[in-house]
């Protein structure tokens, strides 16, 4: 079974993000980057599938040379091959989808995995766009997956419950939390990852169909006030509820 896993490099969720001087991009200085956590789930599912059925797992990303480190991470977790579609920082989800689709058409994977979203821009568009371009069925936000022969059965989280969906291979699956528990790369595998080749191909630096105009970080407001039980404090509470909160 040939499996393609699309991954992305995102700022660590614990990083304090600063907006660049242009007001519409993240300032990369001092930011620690990680493999997108949802992509870890996608990769883990691919590795388990390979361990069960044999085959090959290829990790692919679209981005700048810096994304090599993210691909090494995927190789250390156990991917067999890695592909960097190298170009400028991708303009939008569509340009990423087109680049991924170009590779997928050549590779003809049995199944394509992605995280349900990247935790940087959170546009949630990529899995569906990719499936649409390739003309493949797509199941998104999957929290449980069973593949038997070419039959695919997936559980999806929906508001207040679960939905079970089936399709057949080849297809596109996007991973949600709960799908599995991603493994840690082991020390010897980190060493081996260094020796695995990373294929580089040039990206079609497509013009963006959507454009980011502005980014802002929500202001932190300290809204809590602590009052005691004295008469003055209770009077203060009434005043605040009346004048500030305007609830009484």
């Amino acid at each position: 079974m040939n499996i393609l896993v699309c991954i992305s490099r995102v700022p660590d969720t614990a990083t304090k993000v600063i907006i660049g001087s242009d007001g519409k991009s993240i300032d990369p200085k001092g930011v620690k980057y990680i493999l997108n956590p949802y992509d870890e789930l996608a990769l883990e599912e691919a590795l388990r599938l390979r361990e069960k059925n044999g085959g090959n797992v290829t990790a692919i990303t679209v981005g700048t040379a810096e994304a090599t480190e993210t691909l090494r991470n995927a190789l250390a977790m156990g991917a067999d091959n890695a592909v960097l579609v190298k170009g400028d920082e991708p303009a939008d989800s569509y340009s990423v989808a087109v680049n991924l689709a170009d590779y997928a058409k050549k590779m003809n994977p049995d199944v394509i995995f992605l995280g349900k979203q990247s935790v940087d821009f959170d546009s949630l568009q990529l899995p569906s766009m990719l499936a649409e371009i390739l003309g493949l069925p797509s199941i998104s936000v999957v929290s449980k997956l069973t593949i038997d022969g070419t039959n695919v059965s997936a559980e999806r989280d929906i508001e207040g419950g679960k939905e079970v969906v089936s399709t057949t291979l080849p297809c596109v699956i996007s991973a949600q939390k709960g799908l599995n528990d991603p493994r840690y790369p082991k020390l010897p595998d980190i060493m081996k990852a260094k020796k695995k080749p990373i294929e580089e191909i040039a990206s079609n630096n497509l013009d963006a169909r959507t454009v980011v105009h502005k980014m802002e970080i929500p202001l932190k407001e300290r809204k809590a006030k602590i009052l005691g039980d004295s008469v003055q404090d209770i009077e203060m509470l009434v005043t605040l509820l009346h004048e500030d909160a305007k609830v009484i």
């Binding site: 001092g30 480190e69 090494r72 250390a76 840690y184 790369p185 020390l187 980190i190 990852a193």
Partner: peptide, 22 residues
């Protein structure tokens, strides 16, 4: 990051992995 000054790519990956595990 300054704590990774002078380390190789694998050593940085190792640090991140052990930190996450810990």
């Amino acid at each position: 990051m300054s704590i990774n000054r002078g380390l190789t790519e694998e050593q940085i990956m190792l640090r991140n992995t052990v930190r996450k595990f810990a």
